[in-house]
Design a binder for these strands. Structure first.
Lengths: 107, 107
DNA sequence: GGGCAATTTCTAGAATCGTCGAAATAGGCT
DNA sequence: AGCCTATTTCGACGATTCTAGAAATTGCCC
C-alpha cells in the first residue's frame, strides 16, 4: 500500500453518494447486491450509479460478478482492511508511540 | 459521526498532497510543525499549502496553535480514531459478522 | 513607527467531478 | 431471430478543485 493508492481509495470513499453505495454493499453482506437493486435503494440515475460504481471498482473497494443478466456488486473487505491498516499504521491514529518512528521529531 | 462528516474527512485525505501533509504532521508527533517547515519539507507554494491546510483543519483532522509569528500544525489523532472507528464499524471491514446487522441480508 | 518574517487572501486558469437523460450495448429467454 | 431486461457509454452542463504568483495581512521586534 503506497500513498497514492491510499489517497485514491480515500478519494473514492470521500463522496457522500459513493460512501452510501459502499455502506449499502457492506450491509448487504456476502450476497452482495445487483446494480438494479442498488439503484432502487438509493434512488439515483442509473448512469450516475454506474459512474460511481466504476470508481469504486477501479480502486478495488468493490468487486463485481456477473450472474446472467444482472451484475452483482460486493464490498471488498480485504481492501478496506488494507486501507484501515494503512491509516492506523502509516498515519498512525493511536496518540501513543507516533513520534517514536520519526527520528527528526525527537527534539 | 454521520456519513457526511465521514465523507468530508475521507475526501480531505483523498488527495496525495493533503495525505502527504497529514502524514508528515503525524510523523512530527506531538510537537507539530509550523507551516513554514511544512512548506520547506514538501516544496509546494505557500498559497497551495495554506489552501490544503485549511481543508484539513476544516474537517478537524488537523489543529493549529499560534506561537508568536508562526503557526504550529498538529495532526488531530482523536479525529482519525473516530474516522477509523466509523470505517471499521459502520462500514465494517472485518469480513465476519457484517451481515449480522442487516436483517434483509439474511436470505 | 518602520521593518521583517510568517501566513493568508485574492485572482485566475486548467482540470476534474457529479449529475442526468438519451442512446447504445450485452446477455439470456422464447 | 426477435425481444426484453440490465447495465454502460455518450454528450452535456454547472460546480468544484488544485495549483500558483502577487498582494495583503498579522504580529513581533528594534
Amino acid at each position: 500500500m503506497n500513498i497514492e493508492t491510499a489517497a485514491s481509495q480515500l478519494e473514492a470513499l470521500g463522496n457522500t453518494t459513493r460512501l452510501t453505495i459502499y455502506r449499502t454493499l457492506v450491509r448487504a453482506g456476502q450476497n452482495g447486491l445487483p446494480v438494479g437493486k442498488l439503484q432502487l435503494k438509493l434512488d439515483i440515475a442509473g448512469s450516475t450509479l454506474s459512474h460511481h460504481l466504476r470508481k469504486l471498482v477501479g480502486v478495488n473497494l468493490v468487486s463485481q460478478e456477473r450472474q446472467a443478466t444482472t451484475l452483482i456488486c460486493r464490498a471488498n473487505y480485504s481492501s478496506m482492511d488494507g486501507l484501515i491498516s494503512y491509516l492506523a499504521d502509516e498515519c498512525c491514529a493511536d496518540s501513543a508511540g507516533c513520534a517514536a518512528e520519526s527520528p527528526e521529531a525527537a527534539a
